[in-house]
């Protein structure tokens, strides 16, 4: 249990990636009743997993990703508990393989990377849900959520980077 050992070591700050991802996951289910804001909300948890996998993969272990994905599935009330866990794990694994490329790149490059990951992620979700239901689902809600997620990434990334600097770099 990597998380337990982190706590034993006694660095509460090292829980930041996990906690921030957890908060991002919870924020994504809070209803935002802004005029013009659609039914779907950005996939904040994906942003956080992407961010931390690039900058502190050691503090964003697979088990943490799995746990957050599972919690998200349960709170979302989707019929497919485990689906977000699965897709977040896939996203993390993919980002890990490309990590060296993204570290120390400028923000637009990272953003472009996030675009690719998000599109792949939603394509996977769409394919899996369509398969589980046995019918091809309309692609529009998925596309819309992907666009929304990518366009909200700068904000999410900014918040995470600030937290990162404030709590993890000082040491």
């Amino acid at each position: 249990m990597p998380l337990a050992t982190l706590r034993d070591v006694g660095y509460p700050a090292r829980l930041l990636p996990f906690l921030s991802t957890l908060i991002f996951a919870l924020v994504s289910v809070v209803p935002i009743n802004l005029p013009g804001f659609a039914v779907v909300t950005p996939a904040f948890a994906l942003m956080a997993v992407f961010h931390w996998t690039i900058y502190r993969p050691d503090l964003m272990p697979l088990t943490a990703v799995f746990a957050i994905g599972l919690l998200l599935d349960i709170i979302n009330g989707t019929p497919y508990v485990g689906l977000s866990a699965l897709t977040l794990l896939v996203a993390r694994t993919f980002v890990m393989t490309q990590r060296r490329f993204f570290v120390n790149r400028t923000f637009p490059v990272v953003w472009l990377g996030f675009l690719a990951v998000t599109v792949a992620n939603f394509a996977l979700v769409w394919a899996l849900v369509s398969m589980l239901r046995g019918t091809l689902l309309g692609f529009r809600p998925f596309l819309f959520q992907a666009v929304l997620t990518v366009s909200c990434y700068p904000v999410g990334s900014y918040v995470l980077a600030r937290a990162h600097r404030a709590f993890l770099i000082r040491a």
Binding site: P31, V40, I75, G77, T78, W126, L137
Partner: peptide, 13 residues
């Protein structure tokens, strides 16, 4: 207090 907000589930808590 919560809105699934997902692309394939439409429910609220």
């Amino acid at each position: 207090i919560a809105d699934s907000g997902g692309a394939f589930a439409r429910n609220v808590l």
